[in-house]
Amino acid sequence: MGCGIIKSSYECAACILRQVKEVIDLSCSDEKLKFELMSDCINIMAKDFRDSQPNGLATVVNQYVKEKTGCEDPYSKQKEVSSEIALSLMPKVKEILKADDGLETYVKAAIVGNILDFGAYDVNTDFKALITNNLNENLSINDIEEFENALNSHDEVLYLVDNAGEIVFDRLLIEKMKEYDVNVVVAVISSPIVNDACMKEAVDAGLDELAYIITMGCDSGGIVEEMFSDDFRKVFDESRFIVSKGMANYEGLTEMDLDGKDVFSLLCSKCSPISRNLAIEVGSFVLKKL
């Protein structure tokens, strides 16, 4: 079971507005338009904030900015930098995996990649140092036995990726999972939002060499059930084993009926609301069966 449905806390407003300011700055240079966009986003949030779900509300205001500015991919440069950072760290990560090639080590490698998140951090964050300092972090929630049992019990897994750059680390875990004779289906968003991975980033990372890649039919930040395409809804409903990366996907999954599914959330907790929900410290690594 999960830890309860996640609704927006008072802290979520400040976090979403910080991220909105960043996407506005990256999307346009017209100061008048910037003011209008921020004013509109504040009004959208004020209307829906009380009963909102964090990643759903963040998705709505990001989609609004994209529609009004016509800037399809404001984080394109940041996504390229994320991939460069991830690739530069691969030698260190592979040294760790060479010393211990157990499943848990690969899980931790995938989770450390979840630090590469411009939604949670700002564009000036030293991600390389942050990841390097956490390469040997242990799991605060560790459902590794259940995870390995699921790998031994199913012949297919739906893998919900999160951020560009991060998926370079996901590739390592997917390679390890395939040793359990499971087919892997990777789900990406259909068009850009913040620095989340789309089809291009997944292919660039070589995930198409290991898995069948599909899109969710939307540009949501993490799982937002009402935005699924019909095709993705069918895949999701029929999937009995799901691996979910990141906080936004975790938030969305807590809203859904997951009965009968083996669902595992892999994330680095980067905010207080998620950390409170999971009863862990900010910065903790999590492998949790929902």
Rank of each mutant, 00 (worst) to 15 (best):
D126Q: 02
Y64Q: 09
P91R: 06
D48T: 12
K79G: 03
T125N: 06
V107W: 12
G56H: 07
K94Y: 10
A86W: 10
D126H: 06
V23I: 14
F118V: 00
R50D: 03
L89D: 00
D122T: 13
A129N: 15
R18P: 04
I42S: 02
M45F: 08
V60L: 10
L26A: 02
E22S: 15
K92Y: 10
E72D: 13
P91Q: 04
F35L: 15
M90I: 11
V65T: 04
V112S: 08
I42Y: 15
A86Q: 05
A46C: 04
G113E: 09
E31T: 15
K47Y: 11
K98G: 05
K32H: 06
S83Q: 12
V81R: 15
Y121S: 00
E80Y: 13
D48Q: 05
G119A: 12
F127S: 07
I131A: 01
S52N: 07
V65K: 01
C12T: 03
E80W: 14
L17Q: 00
Q78P: 07
V20L: 01
A99K: 15
A120L: 03
S39N: 12
V123H: 15
K7M: 12
V20C: 02
F127E: 06
G119R: 05
A86D: 01
V61F: 02
I131R: 05
A109N: 08
E72F: 13
C71T: 15
A109Y: 08
G119P: 03
T59F: 00
Q78G: 08
I42M: 10
D126L: 04
N114I: 07
I115V: 15
S83P: 08
D40Q: 13
Q53S: 15
K32W: 07
K128D: 11
N62K: 11
C12W: 03
L26N: 01
K47N: 10
K77C: 10
V107F: 14
N124V: 09
G113N: 14
V107A: 11
R18H: 01
L130G: 09
I44T: 07
E80L: 15
